[in-house]
Amino acid sequence: MNILFFTVSAGEGHNQVARTVADKIKQTDPNHKVEVIDTFNYVHPSLHKIVFEAYIKSIKYIPTLYGFIYKRSEVTDNSIVDVSEFLNKVVLSRKFTRLLADFRPDIIVCTHPFPAEALSAMKRKAKIDIPLVTILTDYTIHPSWINKEIDYYIMPSENFIHEFQYWQIPSERAKFFGIPIDEKFSRSYTRQEVCEKLNVSNTFTALIMGGGLGLGNITETLDYLFTYNIDIQIIAIAGKNQELYRYLSLINRKNLKVFGYVSNIDEFMSISDLIITKPGGITVTEALTKELPIIVTWNLPGQEERNMEFILNNGIGMVATSPNSLISCINLLKDNPDRYQIIRNNMARIRKPHATEDIANFILSMPSTNPSSNERSAFEVR
């Protein structure tokens, strides 16, 4: 079976989800032909650079504008920024169409709404006739994900069944498998052994991070904790943010351990008692799988606000918008075992530790539609 994944480098999550499921499919059967395409980078590297840099700068320097556009597009049929025409002109280039003709996919999987919209347009124009699957990467359903031409939606939670019905999409198209993450997050570890490996103490620990890019108010959060001289171990992970890593490395505190970009977040979560973070879809899913209570101190406007609502509505974490509330949240979890266990029980109830395997198996169970060599290709440029 030929399976083609389309993603977009807007943050880390979309690419990570695509690679995770693609790797699981190849692990299940190496005979499957699987490829992950970073859409804009494939069509034109310069376009990829522009899109990625624009995204990063918008969330860093003008997040309110990003949030305004996101929220307006949630409630209006026509977004303020109508990307559809742009996508159809740029993404649906001859090069893009030729990729489909050469690869001849049986199934196409999208982990970002941009390529999903572009491919849906191709289906509307009868340029392709291939099953199209989308995997949502946040705990919300934005209208940009919704297209009648999409055959299946991989949903993060059953909580969104009513939203799905609102868009008048047949219920059989929704598969509530969860957000796929690396299966190592489902492993159990001996805490003392991992602490020794990471050279940290086996004591009450708060893990502070801002996703793979090290975004958020990490420095301010640490200032709050040091000001109140809270008696816990703090592990701060800067991700790919080199400037943040250099700054944190200069802080001389016995109870602070600083790391840069790491590939074993699962181990750090396993020896932590809570996580202080921004609510990115992947981070929330990883913490949920590890049953690690979440404290949100900062969020990007838009989808992360919806993720934060999911955290609060399901009782799997707290939100701290001031130094006092942050300290109160930490002490409540540290000193109140019953409250701490309630949150962990809620996480155990809604987590989906087998999401990656379930999604891979579902994709592989879909019937092949690859035309035989003597038939006219469904990808022929018309």
Rank of each mutant, 00 (worst) to 15 (best):
I150V: 15
F268L: 15
P131V: 01
F176W: 09
N307D: 11
E380V: 11
F52D: 14
T20S: 10
D82H: 13
K71T: 10
N313R: 00
D338G: 00
N313I: 00
V258M: 00
A121T: 15
M269V: 07
T111I: 06
F362G: 08
N331P: 06
I130L: 00
Y245E: 14
D82N: 15
H48C: 13
L92G: 14
E291N: 12
N202A: 10
V133M: 02
M308N: 10
G280Y: 07
N370Q: 13
I265C: 11
V381R: 01
F226Y: 11
D82V: 13
E309A: 13
V109E: 06
V36T: 14
N345P: 05
S58H: 11
S73H: 05
V133F: 02
A118L: 04
K148H: 12
I169L: 13
H44V: 08
I150N: 09
H44G: 00
K148V: 05
C329M: 03
V81G: 00
K175E: 02
I50D: 08
I271S: 01
H142L: 07
A116R: 02
I311W: 00
K24G: 05
P105D: 06
E196G: 07
S373V: 13
E305V: 09
K123F: 03
K33N: 15
A22L: 01
D138G: 13
L222H: 06
N361A: 14
K24V: 06
F114S: 10
G281H: 04
F379I: 04
H44R: 11
L4C: 07
E74S: 14
N255D: 13
F86Y: 13
N88M: 06
Q233D: 13
K24Q: 15
G280P: 10
I179G: 03
G214W: 03
T203E: 13
E172H: 09
A22E: 10
N370R: 14
L274K: 02
H162I: 09
L225M: 12
I25A: 05
I130D: 03
Q27T: 14
N31S: 15
I251L: 03
T140L: 04
G239T: 06
F379T: 10
G302N: 07
T76M: 00
S157G: 08
Y139C: 09
N88H: 09
Y247H: 13
L87P: 12
T205C: 00
K278I: 01
I62Q: 09
D273Y: 01
V296F: 05
M209D: 07
K24C: 02
E172N: 08
K197V: 07
L274I: 11
E309T: 13
N217D: 15
G315Q: 02
N374D: 15
A355P: 11
D38G: 01
P371W: 03
